[in-house]
Design a protein around this nucleic acid. Structure first.
Length: 293
DNA sequence: CACTTGACCTGTCCGC
DNA sequence: TGCGGACAGGTCAAGT
């Protein structure tokens, strides 16, 4: 589930909650989720303060004052939920009921902090992972050489998008936008939404796109991501933020999970079709394939 | 090289 | 009510 807006939302929440705390204990219920040896735990994890929480692409990083960082990839069903020592954030918090159920059967790793708060790494499908990596490596651009630019970075212009897309001229735009080496952070939801907003058919090959298409696509990607971040991301099934709150972006989605419903722009029915191996939602009427270049 | 498929896992939903 | 199959937001390796 978690794409850029979801990981960004978790990061913002966690940063306020865990900065300054130190890890006292870790309970690993599923070892494949977090391969770490006792030595590394003692030397680089335990009793080290959290300096900062960062995001790059879909990775979330907790920098520790040991010069190492905890790095998380949530893949499809990962959650990072912080719960304080008495299992409450405050009277009447909407997610108190959810928090009381933790740990649950999807809990794979639990971090316990010096203030007795716990951070639950839940992951139903066990695809996600946690690693401990030297912070210096994470700031080295080599580490992210297989990740494309951040779509909300000021340096990410429509020209940059154009240049990167052009490296895959014969591929379908849907597949290229899902490719993390081209651009970081988009997943199935935001690719479908961005293409709808741009009136681009997901089957269009890159070499059929006009320059105007790309200018509009660039603006649409940023608009969709910014709107989702402002709404706390998308909760389709699993996703919750660091406090256990769901995101509300999908209430405003135009095509994702809207198959057989009218297109908000032209009233034609939205279709769902497998493209690039993924369920893809679009309006075949107003998302036309460009004929001329 | 472009593209597809299968694998990693668990849970849910749908049709019989 | 039970069972089998398809499917789910991510990524990687292997195959065509």
């Amino acid at each position: 589930m978690p794409e850029l807006p979801e990981v960004e939302t978790i990061k913002r929440g966690l940063k306020d909650l865990v900065t300054g705390l130190s890890v006292k204990e870790v309970v690993i219920k599923n070892h494949k989720s977090f391969l770490i040896d006792e030595n590394t735990k003692e030397l680089f994890l335990f009793n080290h303060k959290v300096l900062d929480v960062k995001r790059r692409a879909k990775l979330l990083m907790i920098n520790l004052d040991s010069d190492y960082s905890l790095v998380f990839h949530l893949k499809m069903t990962g959650q990072l939920v912080y719960v304080n020592h008495n299992y409450r954030f405050g009277a009447g918090h909407p997610t108190d009921s959810l928090i009381h159920q933790l740990p649950d059967k999807s809990t794979r790793v639990i971090f316990i902090f010096n203030n007795k708060a716990k951070l639950f790494f839940n992951d139903q499908r066990k695809f996600g992972w946690i690693k401990i990596i030297p912070t210096a490596l994470l700031t080295d651009k080599d580490f992210f050489k297989y990740h494309g630019p951040e779509p909300l970075d000021l340096l990410f212009s429509s020209d940059v998008l154009y240049q990167r897309l052009l490296k895959h001229p014969n591929s379908k735009i849907k597949a290229v936008l899902l490719n993390q080496t081209v651009l970081s952070g988009l997943g199935n939801i935001y690719v479908d939404e961005s293409l709808w907003m741009s009136k681009i058919n997901p089957l269009t090959t890159v070499n059929r796109l006009t320059e105007k298409n790309i200018v509009v696509l660039h603006r649409s990607i940023q608009s969709v991501l910014n709107k989702s971040i402002s709404l706390g991301g998308s909760t389709d099934r699993n996703y919750v933020d660091a406090k256990g709150n769901k995101g509300s972006y999908l209430k405003f989605a135009n095509v994702f999970r809207k198959e057989n419903q009218p297109c908000p722009r032209c009233s034609n029915l939205i279709v769902k079709q497998k493209i690039a191996g993924r369920g893809t939602h679009f309006c075949p009427n107003c998302q036309k394939i460009e004929i001329e270049k």
